[in-house]
Amino acid sequence: MPAIEVEGLKKNYGELQAVDGISFSVEKGEVFSLLGPNGAGKTTTIEILEGLRQKGGGTTTVLDMDPWSKGYDLHKRIGVIPQGFKFLDYPTPREAIVYYGVLFGKKVDPDELLRRVILEDAANIWFQHLSGGQKQKLGMALSLVNDPEVVFLDEPTTGLDPQARRAVWEVIRKLKTEGRTVMLTTHYLEEAEELADRVAIMDHGKIVAMGTTEEIESKYGSGQRMIVKSKGDLLKYLKENTKLEVEGEGGSVTIILRDKADAFVALGAIQESGVDWGDLTIRRDSLEDVFLKLVGEEGRSEKEGA
């Protein structure tokens, strides 16, 4: 029985179809990440799963419950950081944790939780005076007070410095080792690559790709490429004298390596061309390349026009 199951989920705001029939499921203990450009529908999706918004259509189950109608029971078993977490102005992080402990009827050790999210130094500062990153860390701490089985994190590291980001990553890794299910949205592809067992790329309310990062890279990526910097017209030479698939812009030429032989052909041809060259690298499409390919510039400008 998966922790989260979504089938044909839809949600519209008036004319706008924010979530357009998406389906996926997240296994218990899995870290699942939703990626997508601004306005793709990530927050809408995650808030429906948290029971904070009502769905427009389809079915959703979290821990075997309908999140909207069984919200009160579900909330005792899930942890949530909303996007752009804000809290009351005056409680300190320590007070906030104690308060949540009472609300959930859980014994919590505020110091332990504060240490866990590296917030000990700000334990007694009023929330309104915390820095952006410290606020976010308190959100993280509060989402864990009730010892949740499923944790929903909507852009938990946005606005954090690299150190703090890594600290949050550590917390998320620990959640996984403790067997909790994590659903994470992020704009940082490396974050998804680092943490997620599987990712789904969302655009315009639809899932355009889903799987492990390797699966997505090999399915939607262009495989290995050789990139060469050259001063002369290497691109022209290669196009005229070889059967290689090449593309280029500026002084850089990209040769698609369809198989291993292509690499030898390419190297030979470059040498024969007599063109001055340097900086040769071989790389594969990263998740970021695939992401940009799938939700390209065109998709974005269309979105802005809408």
Partner: peptide, 13 residues
């Protein structure tokens, strides 16, 4: 506006 009610709704309060 600050979604504090949403936060509270996520607790047993």
């Amino acid at each position: 506006r600050d979604k504090v009610f949403k936060l509270l709704s996520l607790t047993p309060l």
